[in-house]
Nucleic acid binder design. Structure first.
Lengths: 201, 201
DNA sequence: ACTCATCCATACCGGTCGGTATATATTTGA
DNA sequence: TCAAATATATACCGACCGGTATGGATGAGT
């Protein structure tokens, strides 16, 4: 039996760190600012996390990874028609994703751009999530192919990587243009591309 | 007649700042590190640039903007067949772009992701370059349409935005996966998408 | 030759950062 | 009940950061 009194505090810090990092990036995120609205202090933080890097890695795995798994991967994996589920997600992502994605971008992509070249630990964790995403999309394409929906000559691995890349690209561009309409228009083009992989009849 | 003795120093600082910012991002770029290899000191820097922000904005306009104009916009604008020029650029960008783009990403996109939500000055300058890029691509598509190469029903504005978005997305993802093969594969998919806008005969 | 603006080096400042040392509640286990 | 482990607060530290104040060198105009 382990003590569980600490878990609420740990989660509070984790969530606050996630928000701060999402807003400012990891390096610009200040420990003091993270704690500011939590009612906790450095004593609590450094009890649960040995260093700022460890806190960042925990945010990646326990918040960002979990969120993406729940929002994107699970709906595809659990669908009976994964390819259709993928198309649905692309078409409706602006309603399904948290609203701050539009203004602050995708937390996964933000951290990848900032930290991957600087810290190998960050890089490997972030790449793990990215690989998971790409594999899920590839799996959806392969399932679609098996179900006779996707054209047999499609290179599912390459297409999956492109879909994820373009997806992140659309989020990033929309974040800068601060325009939901641009984002929707952009994702619509991606939707058309994915739909073009379907068998035309 | 104004004194021109200062121009070499200014350019040295500008170039060093560009490299440092490309490697670490703007906020993490340290003034001291920028000067370290230049043989100059803070006195020189703060003589030519009133603040770190002004230095960053100068890097954006005078280095990043110029580089992109020379590498991407000019070849399309000056081509007699802009649509073909666009396709060529997408297919050969890995040979034409500076090699550190693969490991460090696109400087424009890096700064957009980091700074646009934080600083409206950065945002407007970066968006200016982005708009220039999108307009150039859109112009290439429109020219292609006029020359009977692009299908008439294509929405050139939306397609151009998507092309730029996907382009940046491919660079970003490749930067994290640190794989030139992935980047090429990804850009190849984008190439296929753009080629699919062509009239099929 | 004198003046004055340009150009740049040096030394320094206040503030913030991540991290630590220590004391203190609180809970748990025997 | 009492000791030990857990959980958190507070005060503090050295490092680094962007920015400034000052003074000296250099060159142009008169």
């Amino acid at each position: 039996m382990e003590t569980r009194q600490a878990e609420p505090s740990r989660n509070t810090i984790l969530q606050a760190a996630y928000c701060e990092i999402h807003r400012k990036g990891f390096q610009a995120a200040s420990i003091a600012d993270i704690l500011k609205d939590t009612g906790l202090t450095k004593g609590a933080l450094y009890h649960h996390f040995p260093t700022k890097q460890a806190l960042g890695l925990a945010v990646i795995e326990e918040v960002i990874g979990e969120n993406l798994a729940r929002l994107l991967f699970a709906p595809i994996r659990q669908s009976e028609k994964p390819f259709e589920a993928l198309l649905y997600l692309i078409a409706h992502i602006d309603e399904l994703a948290p609203p701050d994605f539009a203004t602050l971008g995708c937390p996964l992509n933000n951290l990848m751009q900032e930290m991957s070249p600087l810290d190998p630990e960050f890089k490997s964790r972030l790449n793990g999530i990215l690989r998971n995403w790409r594999d899920t999309v590839e799996w959806a394409l392969l399932q679609g192919k098996g179900q006779g929906e996707v054209r047999p000559e499609v290179d599912c691995a390459s297409a999956a990587l492109f879909i994820v890349s373009a997806w992140e690209g659309c989020i990033g561009i929309a974040k800068n243009m601060q325009s939901v309409d641009s984002f929707r228009s952009c994702m619509m083009q991606l939707h058309d591309y994915v739909a073009s992989l379907r068998i035309s009849k």
